[in-house]
Design a protein around this nucleic acid. Structure first.
Lengths: 171, 171
DNA sequence: TCCAACTGATTGCATTTAACAATTGGTTGC
DNA sequence: GCAACCAATTGTTAAATGCAATCAGTTGGA
């Protein structure tokens, strides 16, 4: 990782890496939505990222070593993006960011259920989730990208989200 | 707090509030450096913030309710900026951000000692620190701005920083 | 064989944000 | 009365971002 270096403060350096409106959104989608292809990230984005921004951010995250890119054997033009260990270790931080946002900002019920579960689960849940991510992003990224890796925590989060969404949209 | 609302996701909303290169830096300096005046924040900034950016960010943080501004009785033009409860509750998040940066980025030894102590201290230390911040930012901001509130955790962090700095600059 | 749909991007253009230097109008202490 | 200090603001330039349209290659199905 090579950055501009305004100062050597850990908080400052972290902000130089993730202190923009999109980098953490992309990591969040890869992590909690298991979105591993460019089109996945582009079309299923809740926030409506533009394709040039997505391309620039992926390039940036690649250069920082937070994600890696490899060919998808199913399609010669497709690429699989995967989280690396440093990015996986952002799980506790994302849990904290989500917890703070849930408490102090006008979040929507469906999109905050996962933050709530992640907060309530605490460190044990974070550790289990990080192990799942290691499996589907580092050890077996191809099967991981197809959603073929077992992932109990992620499945639980996703199921809870779907359930709340079905309930709230049915009203 | 009123924001643009790309989506109601807690992580996204938190990023809309703090997802820029300066907002958290200012909160960090107010929190760990007890910088409560415009000039303090401007002149002692490790990262060299520009005065217009500082003014804009302070205004932004005020409008979000993360800080408040009040007159300094010692000088009719001086203003005291203080953290509010939502900002004080960012302590665990900042601790996590610092911990991640310290582990994965090229931090400098002196500027990372506080992140290390804060990480090792864990939740009990964060709670104690947040109580100190409530005292010097909410209950008695005027004495707090003068550094007259007792603050054991902050004093410990600052002392450790000074010590490392003296040692490393003496070499 | 042909074509529509899909793949990861790139381009051009307008808007927004940031960086830097200089300046403002007012206050304070000597 | 004057130099130093106060919290900003202004003006200019550079960089980043947002948006819509477009690109060339790949794929699967009729």
């Amino acid at each position: 990782m090579n950055i501009e270096q305004r100062s050597g403060c850990p908080i400052n350096l972290s902000l130089e890496v993730m202190g923009d409106k999109w980098s953490l959104i992309i990591i969040r989608d890869m992590m909690f939505g298991n979105r591993r292809h460019f089109r996945d990230l582009l079309n299923h984005s809740q926030e409506g990222i533009a394709s040039n921004i997505l391309a620039a951010r992926l390039k940036h995250l690649l250069s920082l070593g937070l994600i890696i890119k490899q060919d998808d054997p199913s399609h010669s033009q497709k690429a699989i993006y995967s989280l690396t260990e440093p990015a996986i270790q952002l799980v506790p931080m994302l849990a904290m960011i989500g917890a703070w946002g849930r408490k102090h900002l006008p979040v929507s019920e469906d999109l905050s259920i996962r933050a709530q579960l992640l907060e309530e689960g605490g460190q044990p849940m974070w550790d289990a989730f990080m192990d799942e991510l290691r499996e589907s992003h580092i050890h077996d990224p191809i099967r991981g990208a197809n959603g073929e890796c077992s992932s109990a925590v992620l499945a639980g989060l996703t199921a809870a989200y779907q359930q709340v969404r079905a309930r709230t949209s049915a009203q």
